[in-house]
Amino acid sequence: MADKVRIRMTVNGLEQRGEVEPRMLLVHYLRETLGLTGTHIGCDTSQCGACVVHVDGQAVKSCTLFAVQADGSSVTTIEGLVKDGQYHPVQEGFWEKHGLQCGFCTPGMIMAAADLLNKNSNPTDAEIRHALEGNLCRCTGYQNIVLAVQYAAAKMRGEPVTGAAD
């Protein structure tokens, strides 16, 4: 058996240390070792985006990264988006705009959308769709996901927002 490798990373602000087989994917480390099951696995081909997390502030597919590659990095998962008991504006947007049905794709969608809004605070619908190209949803038809991201963008710019009920 291949030698285990020592790793150390910050996950949602907490320092984690461990020994992993080199072949352990980051998504398995997060879900199985750390118990952070909010990050999902939807495919074996790196295409669905259910596993998107942030590594050093950038969206990555955690199923296409060995945990050893993230050694020394800072990782944020969907569990880490809540700040002081407050949902992240993208989480709120998905709630308000009904951006999910079964919810399986949602953690990855939210992490990918949050990455977009970190880089572009005022995206067009087309830019949102381009940024979410690597995230597949089998339920919603995407329309409400785009609305949810627009809601979050507006909220993060400090503009007034209205929810689904309004």
Binding site: V52, A59, V60, A112, E133, G134, N135
Partner: peptide, 9 residues
């Protein structure tokens, strides 16, 4: 190419 997560790596 691909999508943003693919392009980041």
């Amino acid at each position: 190419i691909g999508d943003p997560a693919v392009r980041n790596r």
